[in-house]
C-alpha cells in the first residue's frame, strides 16, 4: 500500500494511478483492501504466498501483487485462479519470459483456457473469439499484461523494446470451444483430465485469419492455413518453435464431415507448411547463396506435427479460422487452474 490521499471524485483516484504510471493507457479499477482480499480469497491464497519466479529477472511474484493487478484490470474474484495459473505458466523456463517480453519482436502474451473453469467464469470460446465484449477474456488477459508492466517492469522503453508490437499485447485470452469439437481438448492432449482446467501461455507474434468459403474437403482449406503458417516474413519460418491453429465452426465441420482426426490435420499442416531452402535463401531469411539441392530441400515451419496446437474456437457461422504464429524463442507452457470453488 502507498500513501493515503483524498481524491475529489472517482476520476481523481483513477488519475492518481495514471500519474504513477501504473496503467496500460486505459483507466484501471482502483483497488481497495477489500477487493484485493476478495481476490486472494477466491484462489485460497495468502498475500505473501509465492506464485512463481522469473529467474532471469530476479523477480519473485507474490500473490498480493497478482491480486492487485487483477483488481486493477477489472477481474472478478472468480477469475483469480485462472490469472494465477497463467502467472505460473509464464514462470516456466520453456516459456522464456524475459525473451518474449523484451524482444523487439513485440509478442502478445496469449492465454488459452481449457476445462470446465472456462464456462464457469463466462470465458468466450465462440463468436468474436479474439474481439471485445467479454469481461473474463478482456480482464484476465489485461491482468497479465498489467502484471508484466507494473510488477515485472516490462514497460515500453524499459524492458519492453517492441519495434511495432500488436494490440493483442493489451489483452489476449480465449477458451477452447470444447463442446463443439469432435476431438479431445488440448489440455487432455497435454496429459490433464477433461475435468481439470488449465491455462496455456503462448508468445504470439502474429495473428493471421484464414478465409476459405469454397473448400468442400479439408485439403484446399488446409493449404491456405499452411500458407499462412509458412509466410516468409514470420519468425516461425526460421525459429521453428510452435504455433496455434484455431478452427472455427464451418471449417471444423469440414474436417468432421470428412472424418478427419486432429492428428491428421496436424500431419497435413506439418507436411505442407514448409519452404525450400532455396526460397528462404533467395529472400534472405536464412544466410548463404543457393546451392545445388536447395530447391528440393525443405524446412518445415515446426519440427514435428505436435508442435502445431489445433483447437476449436470462434463463431459457428463464417468461413474464417486463424493461425497464431509464435515469437522465436518461446515454447507454450500449460499449468493447472487450482481452485476450491
Amino acid at each position: 500500500m502507498q500513501n493515503n490521499f483524498t481524491p475529489q471524485d472517482a476520476a481523481d483516484l483513477i488519475e492518481a494511478y495514471y500519474q504513477r504510471g501504473f496503467t496500460d493507457g486505459f483507466p484501471v479499477v482502483p483497488p481497495s483492501q477489500d477487493s484485493v482480499s476478495a481476490m486472494l480469497a477466491a484462489a485460497s491464497l495468502q498475500q505473501d504466498q509465492v506464485i512463481g519466479e522469473i529467474v532471469t529477472r530476479n523477480v519473485v511474484i507474490t500473490a498480493d501483487k497478482v491480486a492487485l493487478n487483477a483488481v486493477m484490470a477489472g477481474c472478478l474474484p472468480e477469475y483469480m485462479p485462472v490469472v494465477v495459473s497463467a502467472v505460473r505458466g509464464i514462470c516456466h523456463p520453456d516459456f522464456n519470459y524475459h525473451g518474449m517480453a523484451t524482444s523487439t519482436g513485440g509478442a502478445a502474451l496469449t492465454i488459452l483456457v481449457n476445462g470446465p473453469m472456462a464456462d464457469r467464469i463466462g470465458l468466450n470460446s465462440g463468436e468474436n473469439l479474439f474481439g471485445p465484449g467479454f469481461r473474463a477474456n478482456m480482464t484476465i488477459g489485461r491482468a497479465l499484461r498489467l502484471l508484466m508492466m507494473n510488477s515485472l517492469n516490462t514497460r515500453p522503453g524499459g524492458l519492453d523494446r517492441s519495434t511495432i508490437g500488436t494490440p493483442a499485447k493489451i489483452s489476449f485470452c480465449f477458451a477452447e470451444n470444447e463442446q463443439r469439437s469432435p476431438w479431445e481438448p488440448f489440455h487432455v492432449e497435454r496429459g490433464f483430465h477433461p475435468g481439470e482446467s488449465t491455462t496455456t501461455v503462448f508468445a504470439c507474434q502474429d495473428i493471421i485469419q484464414v478465409y476459405n468459403q469454397l473448400a468442400q474437403t479439408p485439403e484446399p482449406f488446409l493449404e491456405g492455413v499452411a500458407d499462412a503458417m509458412a509466410n516468409m516474413g514470420s519468425m516461425n519460418i526460421v525459429s521453428q518453435q510452435n504455433l496455434i491453429v484455431v478452427l472455427a465452426g464451418e471449417h471444423l465441420r469440414l474436417m468432421t464431415k470428412a472424418g478427419w482426426k486432429k492428428q491428421q490435420v496436424k500431419h497435413y499442416l506439418f507436411d505442407h507448411a514448409r519452404r525450400s531452402v532455396a526460397e528462404l535463401k533467395k529472400v534472405k531469411r536464412i544466410p548463404g547463396e543457393v546451392q545445388a539441392g536447395d530447391e528440393t530441400t525443405y524446412r518445415h515451419v515446426v519440427n514435428q506435427p505436435d508442435d502445431i496446437v489445433v483447437v476449436s474456437g470462434g463463431g459457428d457461422v463464417g468461413t474464417f479460422s486463424a493461425c497464431l504464429l509464435s515469437w522465436g524463442g518461446s515454447r507454450s507452457a500449460t499449468a493447472m487452474v487450482t481452485t476450491r470453488i
Binding site: 502507498q2 493515503n4 490521499f5 501504473f22 483497488p31 515485472l152
Partner: peptide
C-alpha cells in the same frame, strides 16, 4: 473520504 493508493510494483532482488 480517504483512499489508499496501492503499489503494484515488485522490486528486483539485488544480487552481488
Amino acid at each position: 473520504m480517504d483512499f489508499a493508493l496501492f503499489d503494484p510494483t515488485i522490486p528486483a532482488q539485488p544480487e552481488s
